[in-house]
Structure formats: C-alpha cells, structure tokens
Design a protein around this nucleic acid. Structure first.
Lengths: 228, 228
DNA sequence: TCGATAGAGTACCGTACGGTACGGTTCCGT
DNA sequence: ACGGAACCGTACCGTACGGTACTCTATCGA
C-alpha cells in the first residue's frame, strides 16, 4: 500500500500524552527495581497514581502496555545519528570508538537490561511480540547506525570488506563479547569490565586490523586478505 | 575447610536416581515445548507420572527443581574435553574451529535456549540462583575448555597474547557475535546464519589474524602488535 | 502372611494476578 | 449553573499456581 511509510512512521514513533508517558516511566522504574514480578497492573496503577481501568483504556491489554514500555524506552534512547559524515581517517576511527562505547553503555544500562530480561523471558510464549519489538526497535536500530558508519568507511577507503553483515557481526562481537549475556544472567561486570572506553578502543583497534585498509600516514597493518 | 573440594565435587555432579533423571528429562521437555508457563509443578507431575508430593520430597522447592534441571542438562552436555594436546599448527587450528562450531551448536540448541531464557527471566529476582548456576555450569565450563586450548596454543607458539581473558573475549565475540541474544529474543537464524561450520572457520581465521603468530609454512600474516 | 515404606492420584488451601464494575470527584464545554 | 466525560480508588470475580494433606495401592523384607 502507498501509505506504508506513513504507517511505519506512526508505529515507529507512537506519541503518548504526557500522562501516559509518566505512567510508562513509572512502569519502567518498577520493572528496574523489582523485576517482572513487581510489574503487576495493580502496582503500576498504584505507582502512577492512576486506576487500573485507565491503564486498560489507555494501553489496551497488559501485553500492549509492555510493548508500549519498549517503544517508549527505544524512542527515549534513540542515539543522536550524527548525520554529518566523518572527515578524515582519525575522525572515522573516533566515530567507531564512540559507537562502541555508546553500545556498551546502552547495553549495560538498568532499563535496557530489565527490558531485555522481560522480553527474553516471554520469548517462549508464541503470542508475545516483545522479543520482536526489542529486536526491531533496539538491535536493528543499533545495526542501522553501525552499518551507515561502516558503509561510509568503505566509501572513504578506510575499510575494506565485501559483506557488510559479516563486518558488522565482527564489530559487534569484538566490542561486546559475552558481556551482554553475562549481565543478563545477573553477573555484575567487575572492575576491568567497567572500562567501556578502553574496551571500545581495544575492540576498534582489533576491528581495524581485520577490516582496515593500509594507514596512509603510518606503517601498513598487514595486507587485508578477508574472505573474498 | 579441608573438604571444600569434596563438597564441590558433590555439588558439581549431583547423582540423581534414574527415576529423578526421568522426571528432570520430562521437565526439560515441557520447558522446551511450552516455555516457563508450561513448567508448573502439576504439569511436571502429570508428564512424569508422579505425584506433586514426590516432586517436593525429591527436589525440595520448585526453585530447587529448576536448579536441578540446569545441573542435569549441564552434566549431560559436558563436552568431551579431548585431553590430548594438539600435535601441530594445523591440528591446533582445527581444534579451535571444532570448539567454535560446538559452541554455536550448543548455544542454538533447544534446551540451552529454553534454560537460558528461564534463568534470564528470573535474574531480576534477587533470590534466584539460576543465573549464577547457568553462568557457572554453562559459560564458565565453556570458558575453561577454551582457555586450556588458548594456553596450549600460546605454549606451542601458535598464538601470541598476554591477557588470556581478552583473547578469549575476542574469540567468543568473533564466533558468536550477537547471534545468541538474537536467538534468545526469539529470532530464528535464517539460512546463512545456520552454517555453523563456515561461521566457525571464518571466525577462527579472523582470530588468527589477531592473535596468531607468523605461520612457519606460509606467508606471514602481519606483525602481531596486540595491546600488552 | 503381615507390617511398613514409597509413591500415585486427587482433593484442598491460601494467595496473587489479570481484568471488570462501581461509586465518588474533578474538570471542561455550553 | 448544569450535564457529561474523564478518571481515581477500591471492591470484586474468576482463574491459576505453589505447596500440603489424605487415601489407596503396590512392592518388599521378615
């Protein structure tokens, strides 16, 4: 249909009234502090000073409310896309490091962890949209941003790859490792794992050794023999 | 205390009677097929043809039963440790590829996904041991196996690194990427993502470009200037 | 053969949650 | 001033689950 884009626009950025936003905010706070057990309709109503009836009127089902929480948080966290294109190689590298650091910061955030736990816990129920929503609004958004960066790196000759999906996969893996799942399981990252900036810089350095072209103002870092 | 090791030994490999094992097996089947909602004590008792009272007598609490399920599955999946040391460089590389492929296969398994979802869903409750159990019996076990491999690679001069934790992190990241979390969220890996062997080989090739020493019988792959 | 132990099947209890209905209050348009 | 809509607080209902108690049967050792 011709209005698919409009439809997308609407469903991608649902606008809640200030009151509804406040409710979602309280619900997120409840979820972060007490986990999914604390996220009952009665508790939400109490925390948000509204009636359960209003919750159902505003959001529909309880699952709809959970979905609204995901959308709301995703809209809040929407990273600045920084549309201007990187100037030189050093700037490009810096942008990658910034992306990596932001990624680690977001993934280790209270709300992100709580929502991911909630969605994963419900992923078995076949009628739950939460998993797909988190994938679409969270991970795919991050992926889009990274892909744009990677493509510009390719265009400017700083990177060399043929399959952007594989390049992104390597980038994500080097940056995050198993940190995310460990945190999801309740493992608090200890001392050295908290150094997101250093972690990001090391990961990007490794990524350049895999996908970077020869540095014009430095010693070459080995010929790039990626898989075709 | 002096019997800490024995205590560890016992808690690491609890021996269940055949009947109890059968119950745990049925419980796992229920969990895989119906998610956590299907995993009620009544349903387990019905599926296993036993009484709820027996469940409580054998396993204690419901949480104890869930913990027993994790332990049981971990004991079943315990990979062959292949204690013999790799012979030459090609063999070592093959062993790494095998590890990577096994890792992908295990992580994408039905039971593994279901148990991880269960543990992550309960990770918010502060009284749940499931998260820690999965970390200890699952991830740490994998990590041990990989670390042994990496160390032997270092000793034999095939690898070069100073921080084994960082090397493992890179290895895990290159192999798994964000595949695990995507699957946990309910995303079915499509066509190309199902090629675990190819995925593993590509990841190990990249890992060698980061941490491998110069190949004696081939062209050097760039000097290894890892961060100390 | 008899007593006892283990265990299956079922009924039962308390609680908690999702969802709905109702009375009372505030606010707004006319 | 009046009528109605929105909405808060609470009471209510049905259901489902964790955990316990009870009955009946089968197996086993003496």
């Amino acid at each position: 249909m011709s209005d698919a884009l409009v439809q997308n626009r609407v469903s991608d950025a649902p606008d809640y009234t200030p009151r509804q936003s406040a409710v979602l905010e309280e619900a997120l706070r409840l979820l972060v502090e007490g986990g999914d057990r604390a996220l009952t309709t009665a508790a939400i109503a109490r925390a948000a000073n509204c009636s359960k009836e209003s919750l159902y009127k505003w959001f529909g089902d309880r699952d709809d409310l959970l979905a609204a929480m995901v959308s709301w948080q995703a809209a809040k966290v929407r990273v600045r896309t920084s549309s201007d294109v990187p100037s030189d190689r050093a700037d490009f590298r810096h942008r990658l490091e910034e992306f990596a650091s932001d990624l680690l910061t977001v993934l280790s955030g209270d709300v992100s962890l709580a929502l991911n736990r909630l969605a994963i816990g419900q992923a078995s129920r076949d009628d739950s949209r939460l998993g797909g929503l988190v994938l679409k609004r969270g991970r795919d958004a991050v992926r889009q941003r990274a892909s744009a960066l990677l493509r510009s790196g390719l265009d400017m000759g700083h990177l060399e790859f043929t399959d952007i999906d594989r390049a992104y996969r390597a980038l994500y893996g080097l940056v995050v490792g198993d940190l995310h799942v460990r945190m999801l399981l309740g493992d608090e990252p200890a001392g050295p794992d908290r150094d997101f900036r250093g972690q990001a810089q090391r990961a990007i350095a490794q990524f350049f050794r895999l996908y970077g072209t020869a540095d014009p103002e430095g010693k070459p870092s080995g010929k790039n023999h990626n898989q075709h």
